[in-house]
Design a protein around this nucleic acid. Structure first.
Ligand code: FES
Ligand code: FES
Lengths: 162, 162
DNA sequence: CTATTTCCTAGTAAGTTGGTATGAAATATA
DNA sequence: TATATTTCATACCAACTTACTAGGAAATAG
């Protein structure tokens, strides 16, 4: 089965939030989590993988946050999958431990190879910049509107209503 | 992540074993399990799904076994995936319960749609007959040789060596 | 009647997914 | 220097999926 994990879905959305900015001023996870209605803790978890893969760079403390470390035009969906999920495509026949991997000529093995190839080709072709430029409106803003949130970015912590 | 489950791998291999035959005389799971070095019980489990999906038909008793119920030229890899794994592609954004599914215009949502499309297109294009005809040698025979098994189909239960 | 083979319903151990919890380390600001 | 803020690091957990196994009922050829 092919499942796009929530790690990838949320991570990708959050990366678009970084790409929406000017690329210089760090974006806090707190604001992304609020805007996209996602778990802050889970986003932190996800972003540690992105840091390790050198896709983003974080700076701590007040005025801290994350910036993209790679050019969105060369940052592919494949890179993001690899950073967040590890291997993109698995099949027993390709594993070291598999009994059948020594059969040189096998149409079934070839089939899995082609499937992997087609999948990777798709993922490598799409970059963060491609997706971002697909519609005029910033993606994060669009999702905020979906939740009926007013776009107050530096707002005063939505008032002390508790 | 995309994982081709062992259900699909083994099931596909076993279907090729049926396709290797004349299409009339039933093939027993016992012989397939022996030739491909797979678990008989697991194959039974897998074939129940194939029966339910009307891909194969079984007849019980001695001289029983399975035959293909569908033409290999129209039996696609997609059909086999569906029968054995259920949904081929899942992503939260497409689910009923997902928070974001009501956003009409979303480049990210479009991206997942394209990914699904590309995957399904690949799987629907390949048929059992295609793969079978890719090499001259029957696929099952090739795998048997890999295990160093002599091709004795109706053999005498590999002698009472226990 | 008996051996053989599929059919059917369960169950289960290991791995993956989708998160939480807790606290340490760094840093801007006062 | 003290403090609030933010990332960094490690560990944990519940629910779900995967990859099987178990035990027997039902059909059928000889
Ligand atoms: S060699 Fe792995 S399926 Fe044929
Ligand atoms: S609507 Fe689901 S990701 Fe945008």
């Amino acid at each position: 089965m092919f499942n796009v994990s929530t790690r990838v879905q949320y991570g990708f959305l959050a990366l678009l939030a970084l790409a929406d900015g000017d690329g210089k001023t760090p974006v806090r996870l707190g604001s992304i989590a609020r805007d996209l209605h996602l778990s802050f803790k889970y986003l932190e978890n996800i972003f540690q993988s992105l840091v390790k893969a050198r896709i983003v760079r974080g700076t701590r403390g007040p005025e801290g946050g994350y910036v993209l470390e790679r050019d969105p035009r060369s940052l592919s969906l494949y890179d993001i999958f690899r950073a967040l999920e590890g291997p993109v495509f698995t099949v027993e026949c390709f594993d070291e431990e598999s009994a059948c991997r020594h059969l040189a000529l096998c149409p079934v093995r070839d089939l899995w190879g082609e499937l992997r190839g087609s999948l990777e080709k798709f993922l490598k072709r799409r970059t963060l910049a491609d997706i971002k430029s697909k519609y005029k409106k910033p993606v994060v803003l669009a999702h905020m509107e979906m939740f009926g949130v007013a776009g107050e970015e530096t707002g005063k912590k939505e008032s002390a209503s508790i």
